[in-house]
């Protein structure tokens, strides 16, 4: 199908975006990589009157290392994240996740900010953001505020971003020397949205887990930090019993929905399987 008619504005400054959002409110939509938005427009799932293309706004497209944080501009493409030596060294969990996002032609356009703002519960980056303890920087005409990833995702495609705000960057703490990462997902075809997946980062000190953050995607209406499983691992060395304790705790953490991939019970089973896999990898 073809999208319903709309007007297109190539914004060159954030102020221009704020003006257009003021003027058009709900009838305007921000266009970043377009890799989710264009598909919904083509399907006529949404029919905005104005698209505000933010791709040409300066200052939103760089990856920087500053004050112990990796700052990823909202317009950084998935393919640029994949090629970044800063990400590979200082935010390795992000580097592990990105090759699983869609396919090359889509990674060449899709943006980090778009993926976070869209907040698909099956997407990799929202869950990774929770595991690494990222902050998101939001800007509106009245200023800038920072929201922790842990407070950002409120429900199905629902976030703490207000309608007059633009997500301008994500800030990820440089990985501490004692922390390790692991990532795994199950998908029918490489690049498809995952059936379920888990991103993990945390301390492995003298063989024992500490402050471990397992974050799941495709396991509920939003990315989920597995608080009970993470607590079950605290201070424990890797063992069959530790894995079983974390797996059993998942019942309290996850609430997967039945979807085209299968029933909720199947997803709970797969959650246990991938938990065992990431813990084994972390213990290596």
């Amino acid at each position: 199908m073809k999208p319903a008619p709309f007007a297109y504005v190539r914004a060159l400054t954030l102020d221009q975006v704020f003006d257009l959002l003021d003027e058009h409110g709900d009838d305007a939509r921000i266009l970043a990589g377009g890799q989710s938005l264009m598909a919904t427009l083509n399907l006529r799932l949404s029919a905005p009157e104005v698209l505000i293309d933010i791709n040409h706004i300066e200052g939103l497209s760089s990856i920087e290392l500053k004050d112990g944080k990796v700052r990823i501009g909202a317009l950084v493409r998935h393919s640029e994240v994949a090629a970044s030596p800063i990400i590979a060294e200082h935010a390795p969990l992000v580097a592990k996740a990105v090759p699983h996002i869609a396919h090359q032609a889509i990674r060449n356009r899709g943006t980090f900010g778009g993926s976070i703002a869209f907040a698909d519960p099956a997407a990799e980056l929202p869950a990774v953001s929770r595991a690494v303890g990222a902050d998101f920087v939001l800007q509106s005409r009245s200023g800038t505020r920072t929201v922790a990833a842990n407070d950002f995702f409120l429900g199905l495609f629902e976030t703490a971003r207000q309608p007059d705000e633009i997500l301008i960057a994500a800030e990820i703490p440089v990985i501490p020397g004692n922390e390790k990462t692991a990532f795994t997902e199950l998908a029918r075809r490489h690049g498809d949205y995952a059936i379920i997946g888990v991103a993990a980062q945390g301390g492995v000190n003298g063989g024992s887990f500490s402050d471990m953050r397992l974050a799941f995607f495709g396991a509920g209406d939003r990315p989920i930090l597995a608080l009970a499983a993470n607590a079950a691992l605290e201070g424990k060395p890797y063992s069959e019993a530790a894995v079983a304790a974390a797996q059993d705790a998942l019942d309290a953490d996850l609430d997967p929905m039945e979807d085209l991939n299968g029933p909720a019970a199947m997803k709970m089973h797969l959650a246990r399987v991938i938990t065992a896999r990431v813990l084994a990898e972390l213990a290596e």
Binding site: K2, R10, L31, G34, Q35, M38, A39, A105
Partner: peptide, 29 residues
């Protein structure tokens, strides 16, 4: 498909392949 799934519409823009169905011609100005 016009949903980014099939890749039949692959086109190169500024040297990189993209989905021709998920990019507006206006964006290629």
């Amino acid at each position: 498909c016009e949903q980014g799934v099939c890749g039949a519409c692959t086109i190169r823009v500024n040297g990189d392949i993209v989905r021709g169905c998920l990019m507006l011609a206006a964006q290629a100005d």
